[in-house]
């Protein structure tokens, strides 16, 4: 037990790095997902070709190798070395963004065509159609997969330990070397990853529930037939 209490600050520090890289990677992946996902749904052949090329390239590349390339190889080309954390965020974001783009494209295409037709009948501009009607509806559909991708990205972030970023995995290895407690050192890391994953899962579930409520769909266990379903009331009803 003393192992855990003594080394907690070190592990928390590692978790902080893991968290930072995960959040940074997710932010980048999200922007990429939206851009290339939407391009993939457009009528223009060029737009769709750009989306396809991006997705196929970065889906097929190992995040680890991409990170090594950005960190070790790119400096040879441009004469400037990225911060290890930045290289990691870029590699993970570009890679997971490719999966995310497919998710966005699928979710947008899953919005019934009738909704699109209603936006034409109401004479919205193409951008307004997307922003006001299509994306808000696709959003609920995207979230479960986005939740999985966040977890995948977080676990994938362990690769940064290989370019000496002191994330959770790096810390665990160091603890093992210094203390010789192989079992405990990695057990502690496992637990920390698990806790982080639970936090991310909780957040995405909240977002999912909120998105479904906005579409007028009831949460899993509805707070039955209350005349005025205040937002907070329904949320708490679903929790219990």
């Amino acid at each position: 037990m003393t192992f855990f209490t003594d080394s907690l600050p070190i592990y928390l520090n590692g978790a902080w790095y893991t968290l930072m890289i995960t959040v940074g990677g997710c932010a980048l992946a999200f922007v990429i997902s939206m851009i290339f996902g939407i391009l993939g749904t457009m009528r223009s052949l060029v737009a769709r070709a750009i989306a396809t090329v991006y997705v196929e390239i970065f889906r097929g590349v190992a995040a680890l190798v991409l990170m090594f390339w950005l960190f070790y190889a790119m400096p040879l080309l441009i004469g400037y070395r990225l911060e290890p954390v930045v290289a990691a965020i870029l590699a993970l974001g570009l890679n997971v963004g490719a999966y995310g783009a497919e998710n966005v494209r699928g979710a947008i295409n899953a919005v019934p065509r009738a909704q699109y037709e209603a936006t034409v009948a109401l004479n919205f501009e193409p951008l307004q159609r997307m922003r006001l009607v299509i994306l808000p509806q696709a959003w609920a559909q995207m979230l479960p997969t986005f939740g999985n991708l966040v977890i995948e990205l977080m676990k994938g972030s362990a690769v940064v330990s290989l370019i000496a970023v002191s994330d959770l995995t790096f810390v665990a290895q160091q603890m093992r070397t210094f203390t010789g407690e192989t079992l405990l050192a990695f057990l502690a890391a496992l637990i920390m990853y698990f806790i982080l994953a639970q936090i991310f899962l909780f957040l995405t579930r909240m977002a999912e529930r909120r998105a479904n409520r906005r579409l007028g769909r009831l949460p899993d266990r509805p707070a039955k037939k209350r005349a005025i379903p205040s937002m907070a009331g329904v949320a708490r009803g679903g929790e219990s």
Binding site: A118, A121, V133, P136, Q137
Partner: peptide, 14 residues
């Protein structure tokens, strides 16, 4: 100038 009402209403659920 033109408006349309659909068989399936097509209201925006969001």
């Amino acid at each position: 100038k033109i408006g349309m009402v659909f068989q399936q209403f097509n209201l925006f659920p969001n």
